[in-house]
């Protein structure tokens, strides 16, 4: 394998691994469920993309032709990650999970749970 390919693969693997680790670290570290939602949906998406790009380049080199199968997983995860996050947020709201004490707009949570329009319009629309 030529050196430049190996360097590209190593760099994207390292980026991917670092972001996956940060995503999971955020999952443990952040204080409430609504904040925890952010870190796996975003950091992990980039992390998995890094690993997939590395895998794509490696398999292309291995097979001798341009293999872009792995893009399929990336695309699938990019489409499903926000949907899964949205469903988990809905579940958390449905179960009346408490949010962090100094969250702004906490009075909205009951309204969001009942899927009503907000009673009080925002300050400067």
């Amino acid at each position: 394998m030529p050196l430049y390919l190996e360097i590209i693969i190593c760099v994207s693997l390292l980026i991917g691994g670092a972001f996956l680790l940060i995503g999971s670290y955020g999952l443990v570290r952040l204080p409430d469920i609504y904040m925890r939602l952010h870190s796996p949906t975003k950091a992990s998406t980039l992390g998995i993309t890094g690993v997939l790009v590395a895998s794509m380049i490696f398999q292309s080199h291995l097979k001798g032709f341009f293999s872009i199968q792995e893009l399929l997983i990336t695309l699938f995860l990019l489409i499903t990650a926000p949907v899964a996050a949205n469903m988990i947020a809905k579940t958390a709201l449905h179960q009346r999970t408490k949010s962090l004490k100094d969250t702004k707009g906490q009075d909205l949570m009951e309204t969001i749970r009942d899927r009503e329009a907000p009673t009080k319009p925002p300050q400067n629309p």
């Binding site: 691994g17 995503g23 999952l27 925890r36 992990s44 995860l77 958390a92 179960q95």
Partner: peptide
Amino acid sequence: SISDRILALDTMYINAIA
């Protein structure tokens, strides 16, 4: 909460793929 557990499971899937 139970949503935390679902979120953790979801993230585990992604890590397992990697």
